[in-house]
Simulated scan of single mutants.
Amino acid sequence: MIRVAIEIFILLLVNVFAYQHTTVDQCDWSGSGGGEGGGVRPVYLRCARGTVLWHYPHDALRVVLSFPASSTANPSPDYSSLGFRVCVKISGLARVFLETGSKLRQLYSPSDGKHESSHRCFRSRKHIVALYMEAEDDYSFKNAKVKLQYDLESNSLKGNMLHITDEEEDCRPCSMEELAKAYCQSDFVARGTVTAVQQQPELNAAELLLRVTKILRVIQEAEQSNESVDTIMSFKKNVRVRVALACDARHGLGEFVIMAKRRLGDLILVCAPRLEVWAQAVQEMDAAPCVLNS
């Protein structure tokens, strides 16, 4: 099956850029079966995040991901040559490969031992990413379904430093300038105390259990609802925020300002200054992308 997949992949290479003339901005795809005559069905998505639902999977899909041309998250010319970061969550009876040059690199298999809630992240070296999804031989289950959620990041809220790994970028402390940027661009900002740190080796992550004392900023959730931020957060006094396991997060005393972004349904830590450090930064900051509060 893999040999056939590689042969089909090579044939498709000549059409890698053809999608630009036919696709429209689209975030999600839902369908069943596979390509006609046992081939590969192409799926073109131009969105920063979305979902692929493949019902009764058969044969293969080739999913091409890119940013919409009109999106504010679209990579600038300075970053286009560096590619962008992609994170996916996958579940179901299929194997998923990342196209890298003339090779296929496996990202997911139902038997690879990783938790399906894991974030599988990688970097694109071009302005698109192509994923090859191959159905497992046993697809006869009545409710068989493959689900792939994706999230594209054109650059880091911390400034996207060159020549360091994504893991190092996620773990390093934020500078004063980065704190203001993170505050204004994060999906969730709150004051609170860290009541515990739970190691999640199966997710290659740790979770900070945050006892919220004051909500400073919430976007995305409020934008998708007619309810006020206070109503939305009234029952969320305890929040889980994920951080890379390699960061070796510890349980510290005192109150922190937690700045987090949403990725694949989870809150991911961006910056976590102590409250007194953040309050001083707010007083000393000459300019900021938005109004800062503490």
Score class of each variant (00 low, 15 high):
residue 8 I to G: 03
residue 9 F to A: 05
residue 10 I to E: 05
residue 10 I to W: 08
residue 17 F to W: 08
residue 23 T to F: 12
residue 24 V to M: 08
residue 29 W to N: 12
residue 32 S to M: 10
residue 33 G to N: 06
residue 36 E to V: 13
residue 42 P to E: 11
residue 47 C to T: 10
residue 61 L to G: 03
residue 63 V to A: 14
residue 69 A to M: 07
residue 75 P to I: 02
residue 78 D to V: 04
residue 81 S to L: 04
residue 84 F to T: 09
residue 89 K to M: 07
residue 92 G to W: 04
residue 93 L to N: 11
residue 98 L to S: 13
residue 98 L to G: 07
residue 99 E to W: 08
residue 100 T to Q: 15
residue 100 T to I: 13
residue 101 G to T: 09
residue 103 K to I: 01
residue 105 R to D: 10
residue 113 G to T: 10
residue 113 G to D: 09
residue 117 S to V: 02
residue 125 R to M: 06
residue 129 V to D: 13
residue 131 L to Y: 12
residue 133 M to T: 14
residue 137 D to T: 14
residue 137 D to L: 15
residue 141 F to G: 12
residue 141 F to S: 15
residue 145 K to L: 15
residue 157 L to M: 03
residue 160 N to L: 09
residue 162 L to H: 11
residue 167 E to Q: 13
residue 167 E to G: 02
residue 176 M to K: 03
residue 176 M to P: 01
residue 176 M to D: 03
residue 183 Y to E: 06
residue 190 A to N: 02
residue 194 V to A: 11
residue 195 T to K: 13
residue 197 V to H: 05
residue 199 Q to W: 03
residue 206 A to G: 06
residue 214 K to I: 02
residue 214 K to A: 14
residue 218 V to K: 01
residue 220 Q to T: 15
residue 220 Q to P: 00
residue 221 E to M: 05
residue 222 A to D: 01
residue 226 N to F: 12
residue 230 D to G: 02
residue 232 I to A: 11
residue 234 S to D: 05
residue 235 F to I: 03
residue 237 K to G: 15
residue 238 N to R: 01
residue 246 A to R: 13
residue 248 D to E: 08
residue 249 A to N: 00
residue 258 I to F: 08
residue 261 K to G: 02
residue 266 D to T: 15
residue 275 L to F: 07
residue 275 L to G: 01
residue 276 E to L: 05
residue 283 Q to T: 07
residue 283 Q to E: 12
residue 284 E to I: 11
residue 285 M to K: 08
residue 292 L to P: 02
residue 293 N to C: 13
